[in-house]
């Protein structure tokens, strides 16, 4: 698991900030046009929306609850638990005779939430930390960045394990753990951009006009950082999902009856030789689809917001 210590992102960010600062708002329309023209990204967006819609309305068609055991199928999952319209188990059943259709929907929801919330936590914490460090500067900046450097030196996989072993597991803890390891790079990028922005004319002007430091930070600098932050966050989402699946694989994920795609895949991978391949196939399909579409969307956003490629 590598939590994106990407210098490329920083480099892109630098170019991007330069452009925004000069060009103002018209860039947004350009970016949107460029994104719409990117076919792979648009297709991915469409597919991802379909998945989101499926997660929302899918339960309406479910015959079985996600935790309900089909007692008749239970003893002979390989023989009777295959996907079938007649039995109401559209995706088959899991090892205990629970409906995989409902479980995949619930798992997809969890994984999407983990991706989005994990990335947003990184976004909020990283942005605030980065702006404060960059804007205040001086000794505060030096010591704040020192802390980030130290934390970056700690192997993050191990921190995840340690955190989850120690604090017990719950949804909240999962988000905290994932957020905790992913805000560092965000903070670094944001601080770098803040440093270049804070000496620009429009900030000087605001300061001369008597605007308070707080307002400058969050009203004038923050909007100019938004582009780079969005690009980086979109790349973080699939990484969060991957990280969660690794945690689930170690048995440190969320508790039953809740489940996540990583966990369903881990279970399905264990039993793949026992004639119940659907237990691996369906969750894996959704998982891979989400990751791939997120990659394309992230790439699309980067291309759209990166003025260098025009």
């Amino acid at each position: 698991m590598n939590f994106a210590k990407s210098d490329k992102a920083a480099q892109i960010a630098a170019d991007f900030t330069d452009a925004t600062a000069v060009q103002g708002r018209s860039l947004w329309r350009d970016a949107r046009d460029r994104f719409v023209k990117n076919r792979a990204a648009m297709w991915s967006l469409a597919i991802l929306s379909l998945i989101a819609v499926f997660v929302i309305i899918g339960p309406l068609f479910a015959v079985w609850d996600n935790e309900e055991i089909d007692w008749d199928v239970m003893g002979d999952v390989a023989g009777m638990g295959f996907p079938s319209l007649a039995s109401g188990h559209f995706f088959g059943v899991d090892d205990l005779g629970r409906d995989l259709y409902s479980r995949v929907i619930q798992a997809t929801r969890t994984s999407l939430l983990v991706g989005l919330i994990g990335a947003s936590m990184a976004l909020v914490v990283g942005t605030v930390y980065g702006i404060v460090a960059g804007f205040v500067g001086g000794r505060t900046d030096a010591s704040m960045m020192r802390i980030v450097d130290i934390l970056l030196a700690i192997p993050m996989t191990l921190v995840l394990i340690l955190l989850l072993v120690i604090a017990g597991r719950s949804f909240t803890m999962l988000f905290v753990a994932l957020g905790a390891v992913s805000w560092l790079t965000m903070a670094r990028i944001v601080r770098g951009q803040t440093l270049t922005l804070k000496n620009r004319e429009f900030i000087e002007a605001a300061r001369a006009g008597g605007v308070s430091e707080m307002t400058i930070m969050f009203r004038h600098i923050m909007p100019n950082l938004l582009g780079v932050v969005i690009v980086y966050a979109s790349l973080l989402v699939p990484e969060m999902i991957l990280a969660e699946s690794f945690i689930s694989f170690l048995g440190l994920g969320i508790s039953e009856p809740h489940t996540s795609l990583g966990r369903l895949i881990a279970e399905g991978a264990g039993t793949m030789a026992y004639g119940t391949i659907w237990q691996l196939a369906f969750p894996l399909f959704f998982y891979v689809t989400i990751i791939i579409t997120m990659f394309f969307i992230g790439d699309g956003l980067r291309d759209a917001l990166d003025p260098k490629d025009r």
């Binding site: 991957l242 699946s245 690794f246 694989f249 990583g262 895949i265 881990a266 991978a269 264990g270 793949m272 030789a273 691996l280 894996l284 998982y287 891979v288 990751i291 791939i292 990659f295």
Partner: peptide, 22 residues
Amino acid sequence: GIAAQALPNFIMGPILILTFTL
């Protein structure tokens, strides 16, 4: 590249053992 990156790496273990060993 995309496929390799999107597959969770822990499913490689059982697949490899089933294929090359069994």
